[in-house]
Nucleic acid binder design. Sequence first.
DNA 1: GGCTATTGGTAAATAATTTTTACGGGTTGG
DNA 2: CCAACCCGTAAAAATTATTTACCAATAGCC
Lengths: 304, 304
Amino acid sequence: MQNKIDLRKLPPLKSLKGFEAATRHQSIREAADELCLTHPAVSHQVQLIEEALGVTLFAQDGRRIVSTEEGRVLYPYVRAAFESLLEGVEAAHRHALDKPLRVQTYVTASIRWMARRVPQFLQDNPQVKLVLSTCAVDWEFDDVHADVGLVYCETPPSHKYHWVPLFDYALFPVCSPQMAASMGQGPTAADLLTKPLIAINTEVRNWQTWFESAGVKFDPASSYLVVDTLAVALEMALNNEAIALVNGPFVDQDLASGRLVRPLAHTAVCPGEWGLICRKELKENLRIRTFMDWMIQSAAAQSR
Amino acid sequence: MQNKIDLRKLPPLKSLKGFEAATRHQSIREAADELCLTHPAVSHQVQLIEEALGVTLFAQDGRRIVSTEEGRVLYPYVRAAFESLLEGVEAAHRHALDKPLRVQTYVTASIRWMARRVPQFLQDNPQVKLVLSTCAVDWEFDDVHADVGLVYCETPPSHKYHWVPLFDYALFPVCSPQMAASMGQGPTAADLLTKPLIAINTEVRNWQTWFESAGVKFDPASSYLVVDTLAVALEMALNNEAIALVNGPFVDQDLASGRLVRPLAHTAVCPGEWGLICRKELKENLRIRTFMDWMIQSAAAQSR
DNA sequence: GGCTATTGGTAAATAATTTTTACGGGTTGG
DNA sequence: CCAACCCGTAAAAATTATTTACCAATAGCC
């Protein structure tokens, strides 16, 4: 790095704000107003510095104050110091925002949730760069290769992580309007057993869970289609080929547009939640906070 | 002056010391040692800044810490800020010491006390410049035209002044060795009445005070010489022409060298004291403190 | 000239902050 | 594998900063 410097000779740094503002205004009161302090606070700050330096910085002139020559000599240095710090903060921010934010999520969440929001996010935060990476649904959040994750957790994750739940792991079937119509008016859960059901290979128990919560016996051995991601299942549902079981708010747009429908309203809310995750020490990180806050906002807007 | 800058965006200034040292050492503990703090203090300071900026500044690497890229980006700006402040302090000091220090005192104190010390003081403090000004003995300290005074005060001066007593207002007669010899062995106070006594026009009562304290009646109307400063009176005493009444430690050298003697030991200590005076708000001023401390030291050394 | 509004300074009380103490977890090197 | 070392955390203690309440001085205004 660099050589040692004598930090002990520095005046009380906090009080320098008072000196800076007081010098600029040539008035204790105005400085106090600017700093949102009372005038004795600024008065005291100035005195502290005068004592620390052994130099008189202001003289009283009527009911105002006037910088002494020493005050005028000192000011530019203090000013330069503050400007350097502000530049440094700026530079650190720029640098921090410049590194791409690595976001990890599952295929379906990526395609059907992230993909619909990320463009707007990038438009709102043009300085941020994103790298989206996708993993299988049962993967854990990998804090080495990602900064933030949108993942499902059955139980709150370990204490080393910061965890913000976003929405329920809520199971409900969807299919094409034609498929729904073929089951007649107001089909029951049992009626679904007559149709091709698609399951996700990592979550084969979901259909059983849903049927049980609907009070219908379901034989897991009964033949059904298994694919490896919900995105594929949904594609098949859209193509009128099967009924898919959705596990989160991933079909809102298709439902809104009518391309998919819910043949019946029953929803099975499972334990655990979808949420955003990051390492605890990064939760105040500028990029990460920006990203998480935006996504939380967006999720709240969706469910409203 | 200059334009407003946004002081609110500044990180907690005091904590920057911790960041600076921690970055330089790449170690919290070493930084703490340098700053004479405990390691949690520095750890906390660093965290404060990280939170304020929303940027991670250090990463743990085994049992040390390593600056992140952001930390390395920020450091030079912080460093520059500190250096600017140190320069500013230096510049203010230089400027403060550059203005001559205006010292006010009376003729005799000036000639017979200051004049003997000032050269050494200036040698010890080569950056300080002095202007000595002299006034009549009954003048008050004039804080418009002087920074410090060496004056006599009967009662402690008003609260707006900083007052450091240096020595008593002690009256005792001095004369040449010949004059003393002409009074025979062990003269009494009354014997002095037969010799020419010199008084100072602003302090004509002093002889009366001294004789009364010695238990001798003294008629103020009795003829004696009146001059306007003790310095003149002493000159006459040195020339064997009269007995002078000294009111402070102004003849120490002459007594030591034997050029003047005290015909008898009786001393009348009057109320009040000689001392250094300056405006209260200046008492921490670098030049003034330097000067006063030096003179206090010197006076203490003399009376020792 | 006297009155009032405004500005600063001071001191004690209060609030905020920094620092320390005490402890725990993780890493390194013998 | 253990001891030494370093860092982080949380609560307590110590220190600083700020406010409140007051006073003195000035300047503008009848």
